Computed example of a mutant assay.
Amino acid sequence: MKIYLIGYMGSGKSTLGKILAQEQEMNFIDFDHFLEEKEGKSIAKIFEERGEIYFRKKESEYLNELLQGYDNTIISLGGGTPCYGDAMERIKAAEGTSVYINVGVAELTQRLWSQRDHRPVLKHQDTPEKLEEFIRKHLFERSYYYNQAAVKLMVKGEPVGELVAQLQQKLF
């Protein structure tokens, strides 16, 4: 079994994925960390040195690698991973189940405000209002891809343990 967690940055893909993988005795891969290891530098550094186009090209290449192997694994994809090129089509065609972790704009804004310096696409959002407007627009653009996931988990402030239990019920 393979599970692909998708959703906006800060939605909890990695947090939920790690716990779910541990409870189900599965492997876990955080795609952002996987990509950073392959490239030998942080995503922020890749954006700074090579730009977003280079990053998205490499992201697509490494996604192919993950789609081909890694059985019995939960993979937390990057927030933009399914939204570029034919990535979502490849995810849907691959062995496994895609899960959209759907978190509302207000909750995402609250979660991401303190993290924006470490996230290249959020770096220039210098007020909570600008950040919220950016997330709202970005999420609107990406929702077309996210909503193609086979399973959807609506998050409305529930504790992590409850969300993991909901995922288990939907997937196993």
Rank of each mutant, 00 (worst) to 15 (best):
residue 45 K to G: 00
residue 45 K to D: 06
residue 48 E to L: 10
residue 49 E to T: 02
residue 49 E to N: 01
residue 49 E to G: 02
residue 50 R to M: 07
residue 50 R to E: 13
residue 50 R to N: 09
residue 53 I to Y: 06
residue 56 R to A: 05
residue 56 R to K: 07
residue 57 K to W: 10
residue 57 K to P: 00
residue 57 K to G: 08
residue 58 K to A: 02
residue 60 S to H: 01
residue 61 E to G: 05
residue 61 E to Y: 11
residue 61 E to Q: 08
residue 63 L to I: 07
residue 65 E to A: 11
residue 65 E to I: 13
residue 66 L to A: 11
residue 66 L to I: 14
residue 66 L to R: 08
residue 67 L to W: 08
residue 68 Q to D: 12
residue 68 Q to W: 07
residue 68 Q to N: 12
residue 70 Y to N: 10
residue 70 Y to F: 07
residue 71 D to K: 10
residue 73 T to K: 11
residue 74 I to N: 09
residue 75 I to S: 07
residue 75 I to G: 11
residue 75 I to Q: 09
residue 76 S to Y: 15
residue 76 S to G: 13
residue 77 L to D: 09
residue 78 G to Q: 01
residue 78 G to I: 00
residue 79 G to R: 03
residue 79 G to W: 04
residue 80 G to E: 02
residue 81 T to W: 01
residue 82 P to Q: 04
residue 83 C to W: 02
residue 83 C to K: 00
residue 84 Y to P: 02
residue 85 G to K: 05
residue 86 D to K: 11
residue 86 D to Y: 05
residue 86 D to G: 12
residue 88 M to V: 10
residue 90 R to P: 15
residue 90 R to V: 13
residue 91 I to L: 10
residue 91 I to S: 13
residue 92 K to A: 13
residue 92 K to G: 08
residue 93 A to E: 14
residue 96 G to P: 03
residue 96 G to M: 05
residue 96 G to R: 03
residue 97 T to H: 10
residue 97 T to R: 15
residue 99 V to R: 04
residue 100 Y to H: 09
residue 100 Y to M: 07
residue 102 N to H: 15
residue 104 G to K: 13
residue 104 G to H: 08
residue 104 G to S: 09
residue 106 A to N: 11
residue 107 E to N: 13
residue 107 E to T: 13
residue 108 L to P: 05
residue 108 L to N: 01
residue 109 T to E: 04
residue 110 Q to P: 10
residue 110 Q to D: 15
residue 110 Q to K: 15
residue 111 R to H: 14
residue 111 R to M: 09
residue 112 L to R: 11
residue 112 L to D: 13
